[in-house]
Simulated scan of single mutants.
Amino acid sequence: MKKTVSIVIPCRNEENYIKKCVDSLLSQSYPKELIEILIADGMSTDNTRAIISEIIKDNPSVRILDNKKFSAPSGMNLGIKESKSDIVIIFGAHAYADKDFVKENVLALENEEVGCAGGVITTINDSIKGEAIAEAMSCPFGVGNALFRYADKESYVDTVGFGAYNREFLINIGAFDEELVRNQDDELNFRVQKSGKKILLTPKIKSTYYSRGDFKKLWRQYYQYGFWKVRVIQKHKKPASIRHLIPLMFVLFLILGGVASIFSNIIRTGYFSTILLYLILDCVFSFKISNKKSLKHFPYLFVTFPILHISYGIGFILGIVNFYIFKSKRLEENNKKISR
Rank of each mutant, 00 (worst) to 15 (best):
S261K: 05
R63E: 14
P306D: 05
G79C: 01
L109N: 05
Y222R: 14
L201M: 09
S83K: 10
L188F: 06
I9S: 06
R330Y: 14
S339Y: 14
Q224R: 13
R243S: 12
R12V: 11
K293L: 13
K153F: 03
S207C: 14
E187N: 13
A240K: 03
K216E: 13
N111H: 02
N47D: 15
K329L: 11
K19Y: 12
E104Y: 10
L252P: 06
G258T: 08
L277K: 11
H309D: 09
G161P: 08
F70E: 12
R191G: 01
I64A: 12
S328V: 03
S61C: 14
N105W: 12
F287P: 00
G163H: 01
P31E: 04
I262Q: 10
Y17L: 05
G163R: 04
A40Q: 03
S286I: 05
K57W: 06
V230S: 03
K3H: 12
G75F: 05
K293C: 04
F148Q: 10
L78D: 10
R149M: 13
K296N: 11
L25F: 08
L279Q: 09
I320N: 00
I205W: 02
S155D: 13
V143Y: 05
F285E: 12
S27W: 04
I128K: 13
M137Y: 14
V106F: 11
S53F: 06
K216I: 14
S71K: 12
D214T: 02
M1K: 10
E104K: 14
D177H: 02
Y278R: 07
Q234I: 09
A40R: 03
Q224H: 10
K217L: 11
Y300I: 06
F101G: 00
K237L: 14
V102Q: 13
F316W: 05
F263G: 09
T202G: 01
S24T: 02
E178A: 01
S207H: 15
H94M: 14
S273C: 11
K327M: 00
S211L: 09
A175R: 11
N166R: 15
R12L: 10
G270I: 12
L245R: 02
F101A: 00
S138D: 10
E113L: 10
Q193L: 15
I173E: 04
F305P: 02
S273F: 14
K292W: 00
S85L: 01
L147E: 12
I173K: 02
E154L: 07
I133G: 01
I133Q: 04
I173Q: 05
R149H: 15
I37D: 04
T159L: 08
L218T: 11
F316Q: 06
E333N: 13
K129Q: 14
N111R: 07
E82K: 15
K296M: 02
I89E: 06
E112M: 06
K84G: 07
I233Q: 06
A164E: 08
L279V: 11
L78C: 10
Q221I: 01
F263D: 00
K19H: 07
T274D: 00
R149A: 05
N145S: 13
D41T: 00
G142Q: 02
S273L: 14
E104W: 03
E33L: 05
D214G: 01
V102Y: 04
G161S: 12
A72Q: 13
I205A: 03
G213M: 03
N322L: 00
K129H: 00
K129D: 03
G161Q: 07
Q28W: 02
I56V: 13
E15L: 03
G226A: 01
I307A: 00
H236I: 00
H309Y: 10
V22W: 08
